[in-house]
Amino acid sequence: MTTDTLRSLLDSSALWTVTAGAAGLGLVAGAVGSFAVLRRQSLQGDVISHAALPGLAVAFLLGAREPVFLILGGAVTGWAAMVLVGAVSRRSRVPVDAALGTALSVFFGLGLVLLTYAQRHVPDASRHPLERYLFGQAALLREEDLRVIGYLGAAALALLAAFWKEFKLLSFDADFAASIGRPVRLLDLLLTTLTVTAVVIGLKAVGVVLMTALLIAPAAAARQWTNRLGVMVVLAGLFGAAAGAGGTVFSHLAGGGVPTGPTVVLSATALVVLSLLFGTARGVAWVAIRTRLSPAGGRAPATR
């Protein structure tokens, strides 16, 4: 690539808008995803994002064309899927992972049915490429999408800060939280709602199939650098933002047809690999060096 094309890239204001949007949703996904990873519910995001598809399609079939309403539709079904998973694993002997797999595939299947139906039978469907929601296309982000990402993301982060102490307690010792009278079920539902929010604002740019990685990867990477929750959440947010922005730029460089979801996920994965190796708290290489240097050294004591 010549410096000229690089300069023209940097000058393009559309790219800046889109990159800012992707960074914003990466920030929210990283911060919220930290709790999912710590609570060993990483695959919750996988189910929520797949389950958002039928909601999007229903909203579209009902005539919604604005991003807010499409996202709202996706949020409703994503949330409903998690509530159903909870009901099934509490009220039957189906293991929770099987309940998650069932919800994921059934909701996604229903989404495909509705999506294909819309493509074949709704007259203006070709002007609204709903199938872009499968693998994401950051280039399609408009200013109104950015506003949605901004408002909803800020709301999610504000709630995260407001209930910080409760969420921390819930993540590390849910039984204790229940024993001192915290409404554990309600807090759990609130945290799920935040995850749903983080997922649905990313659907257009990253897509339903790969959005889960943006929840997990930044958090798993951040975990390797610190044993403190606050630092981890901030770091995960930054990693998420970097992956979102980096992935968008890569997808842009690779040319029009390349979906953004894969490039974002691969950027995040690169961060994970680096962190697993060099993370200062637990990274493989770092621990090896520390062991070499001090006879009593080794892995720093984990807080958990």
Binding site: R40, S42, D46, T212, A213, I216, A217, V272
Partner: peptide, 13 residues
């Protein structure tokens, strides 16, 4: 360094 669920969620995406 990562839990079982996160390992699955990192590898396949």
């Amino acid at each position: 360094l990562v839990k079982a669920d996160a390992a699955v969620g990192l590898a396949f995406p």
